[in-house]
Design a protein around this nucleic acid. Sequence first.
DNA 1: TTGAAAGCGCTAACAT
DNA 2: ATGTTAGCGCTTTCAA
Lengths: 344, 344
Amino acid sequence: MTRRQERPLVKITDVARHADVSPSTVSYVLSGKRSISAATRQRVERSIRELGYRPHAGARALASSRSNVLALVMPLRSGIHMPVQMRFAASVVTTARTHDHDVLLLTQEEGVDGLRRVADSALVDALIVMDVQLDDERAPLLRSFALPSVLIGFPAEAAGLTCLDLDFTATGEVCVSHLAQLGHRCVALLGSPPEVYARGTGFARRTAAGFTAAARRFGMVSTVRACEPGGEAARETVDALLREHPDLTGVVVHNESALPPLMEAFQRCGMRVPEDLSVVAVCPDELAESAAIPLTSVAIPAAEVGARAVGLLMAKLAGRKVPEATWLAPRLTERASTVPRPVP
Amino acid sequence: MTRRQERPLVKITDVARHADVSPSTVSYVLSGKRSISAATRQRVERSIRELGYRPHAGARALASSRSNVLALVMPLRSGIHMPVQMRFAASVVTTARTHDHDVLLLTQEEGVDGLRRVADSALVDALIVMDVQLDDERAPLLRSFALPSVLIGFPAEAAGLTCLDLDFTATGEVCVSHLAQLGHRCVALLGSPPEVYARGTGFARRTAAGFTAAARRFGMVSTVRACEPGGEAARETVDALLREHPDLTGVVVHNESALPPLMEAFQRCGMRVPEDLSVVAVCPDELAESAAIPLTSVAIPAAEVGARAVGLLMAKLAGRKVPEATWLAPRLTERASTVPRPVP
DNA sequence: TTGAAAGCGCTAACAT
DNA sequence: ATGTTAGCGCTTTCAA
């Protein structure tokens, strides 16, 4: 058995004694909440370093009623593209660390009770809630909490909440607008799996709404359909789509998992991309870039969303006012998958 | 502005007064650390419910030196298949909740400092460390910690540590053995991206070692190569492979991200699966099942690994002895992608 | 079976 | 610019 380095726990009084100051001075050096002479600060910092002092998180939380921990509530359910979630989580953790906070991971499953639990026990100072539904039952709860929170996505009734998301309505519009400029007249949106629409996920519906509205404005023929993942489903979807719309020349795909099988299915049906069919994806840039045919796309800015969510929370914790709604503007990048409409 | 439900924080003394007992009795009802008469227990439980009491996490941590939080250190780097990580994380969180613990998410990037930080500050009671390298610098640190930890994966020197993983050596063997029984004589392993081997990731090397050893035992011709993700890379890999081994009839793919492009590349080279080429995958069952051709596979048991990791930690926290090494036995499921070797 | 009371290590109000 | 000290809310000895 290796010997355990059972460090006897250095406390603030040890540091104080070592630096020949009072405990409060050490505390203030650490928090910066009052001015300290340069000489004292240096002595204290030196003692902290030499003794390897680390404040006890629990004691600190008890005395200050701040845990310096954020809760991140993540979905781990089907129909959601995991890599996007992970990028988001990574960005939240990294940004939180930048503000001296840690991140507690909660699953969607714990639902309303989970939120109440971490809030009431003062385990966390603030909450980030992902995958918000239009009729999300957590929305009213969060509104009633004293704890600051940020929702990723917008419930139907968002007043009194701080919400943040890519502007999916504008995203749908931007995609259509791009295709319209290239001369396309008949377009389709291939979206999330049916269950995502069914459970009232705002982003899926908003993309569809933006897409349809813009297509109408441009006088285009347009159609929207949900899209299961998997090769089988992709082929069926594409078959049906081409049967009903033989003169289709442009599609928008808003479904990361279905993207590769859809691309394959198009080829099989004799629709070459981009010669016969222009494709715009809504997906992370990395995915669009590394596709067999690099895809024109609107990026899902997971890292930016994560960073901004934490930023909003920090502002709220500092007592600053923040805007209730933040819609991130879509950014379309042209790549190889979209070209002017082939002459008929 | 909505009125905040600024609940005035119910504390243990409030419950005690309400139930007409002492605070310690309430504490003991909650912890079960001493016997309480049925009558008292019921009164206390009722008061807890009526007042909506939730112990203050920080106060509890301070008084008991237990935070009831586990740290989960996750990789968020390239060459790792995100969905597997997420399943694992989900399983850790869910299992931890089962034992009344929460999970703090740390990124690999924080490295050794991150571990020291959460350990020294008593933020967490125990650690789960994923994506362990053969020469992982965190291994000696964890060995020296008083905090219990479990590593997912094995460093080169694992003595004195609690490690847990799928038995990848056996996995490589099982795959080869299955192909051997079907009469295949020339086989290849398509593995992780080169950088994964380069940084000394044990599981990639172990699969290769098991694969090669078993192939030798069966007197088969075998080859191993790293495999970048992406369609381009897949095609090149397959081209080169078939050029060098024209009589190849079986492959093992241990790389989730490369799986779809590889399957496509095989088709393009005129190798139909399974008629011309038998394929065994090492990947989550969901992925193997939902492929265009359902794949014979060895499952990556992410959920089981997560649950067992937490179980081991709970045992250690309870002062029980646990085995240092836990190798989960591989389980191969036959599906449509493997058949007897075509008669030459 | 239950209660009283001494801390756990830190912060922040109050002093100086 | 710094020190003193009273808690923060809970667990756990020690007593009864």
